[in-house]
Design a protein around this nucleic acid. Sequence first.
DNA 1: TGTACATCAGTGAACGCGCGTTCACTGATGTAC
DNA 2: TGTACATCAGTGAACGCGCGTTCACTGATGTAC
Lengths: 210, 210
Amino acid sequence: MSFRSHRPPDRDAYHHGNLREALIETVLDLIGKHGPAGFSYADVARAAGVSPAAPYRHFRDRNALMAEVARRGFERFAEDLEAAWNQGRPDPVAAMDACGRAYLAFARREPAFYSAMFGAGASATDDPALRAAADRAFGVLRRAAEAVSATYPGPERPPALMVALHLWAEAHGIASLFLSPEGLRRGIPMTAEELLEAALLVYLKGLGGR
Amino acid sequence: MSFRSHRPPDRDAYHHGNLREALIETVLDLIGKHGPAGFSYADVARAAGVSPAAPYRHFRDRNALMAEVARRGFERFAEDLEAAWNQGRPDPVAAMDACGRAYLAFARREPAFYSAMFGAGASATDDPALRAAADRAFGVLRRAAEAVSATYPGPERPPALMVALHLWAEAHGIASLFLSPEGLRRGIPMTAEELLEAALLVYLKGLGGR
DNA sequence: TGTACATCAGTGAACGCGCGTTCACTGATGTAC
DNA sequence: TGTACATCAGTGAACGCGCGTTCACTGATGTAC
C-alpha cells in the first residue's frame, strides 16, 4: 500500500505536505491578478484548493503570510543585486550600473514580489526576518556605493551611504512611478532602464571631476 | 422659523448640505489613522455621523470617493509646487531646489493626501479629472526642468522631460522610502530634504560644466 | 516484516460580524404664485 | 407676506454575502517495538 517513498511530497495527497509553499505561490498569483490588497485570506485558501481553516496551520493570519512573501521577495532581490554587482567587476561604475538594471529587471519580472515588498502590504517594521532580508538587499547597494565612492580622490570622496540612498530612491521612484500597470507612464519616450541609467551617469559625473 | 440665512451651511442641520466636504475630510482623517486601505465605506459614513446610505448621494462608491480625495490632493500639490517654483525666481536652479523642498514638505505635511495620490488607492488611469490634476502637478516640474535645461549652453542642453522625470522619481523615491511612518529610515544621518537637495545638486552639476 | 500508536495536516460545519447596497420614507429647504 | 408644492439630502431597516476564526474531527504518515 505504501509502495511510494514519502520523501518527495505528493502534490495531490491528502496531506500534501507542501501547503506552505503552495500558499506562497498562490499569493503571488493572486497579487498578479488583483493587487496586493485585492484578495482575502479565505480567497488564498480557496485558490490553493484547501479548506479555509487549512492556512492557519502555517501562518497566524493574512499579514504573516504576506510578510513571508515579502521576505522571500527581498531574499531573491538581494541575490539578483548581488549577482549584478558581481564583486564590482569589471569596474565599480559598470557594476553599479548593472545593479540599477537588475533593480528594474526585478521590479519588472516580479511585480507581485515587488508590490508585496514595497506596496500597501507589509511595512517591515514589525517582522525582524523581513527587516533583515530588506537590509540584506540594501546592503548590496551600500557596498556598491562604497566601492564607487572609493574611486574618487580623497578630498572629494562622497559619503557612500548618501550615494546608496540616492541610487535606491531613484530606482524605487522610477519603478513605482513608471513600471506599474500603466501607472503614470504615457508619452514617456524612453524605457525605465534608460531613464535610470541616464540618471546614474549624470549623477556619477556630478559627484566628481571624472 | 427660518430666521437664519441658508447660505452658510449649518453644520448640524438635518440637511447639512456639506456632507460631500465632510466625507472628504473624514477620509483624510481615517487615512491618517488607519492607512488608505484601513477602513470601509460604511466606516466613513459612521465617522462622519451619518447613515451608511448617505454617502451614496455624493459618491457612486468608495473608489469614487477616494479618487476625489486623490484629485484634490494633486490640486493642492500643484499649487504648492507652483508657489515654490515662483516663476523661476530668483533663478531656475534655486527655484527648482525650492520645488524639491516643497515636494517633500507636502508629503510630510499631508501624508493622507500623499498616500491617496500615490498609495494603494486610486491609480489614475480611469478617472480623467484625477489624471488631469496629476498632469497639472507634473506640469510644474516639467516647466521647471525646461527653464533649468535652458540655462545650459545649446550643445550640452539636457532634454527637459528627462530632467523632470529624474527629479520626480528621486523626490517620490525619497518620500515613499524615507518619510513614511518609520518605513525604512533608521540610522540615516540626514533628513529627507537634505538627501533630496544633495541629490539635486550633484545631478545638476553632472548635467553640465557649471 | 508486522502491528500499535502518536503525530499532525487538513476537513467541514459553524459562529457572529460588518460589509456594500437597495429601498420606501421623511422632513427641511427653496420656489412659484 | 403667506401658502402650496417640488426638490432632494439623509434616514433607518433590510437583504444576502463572504469574511476571519474556532472547533472537534479524521485519516494519512512515520515510528517504536
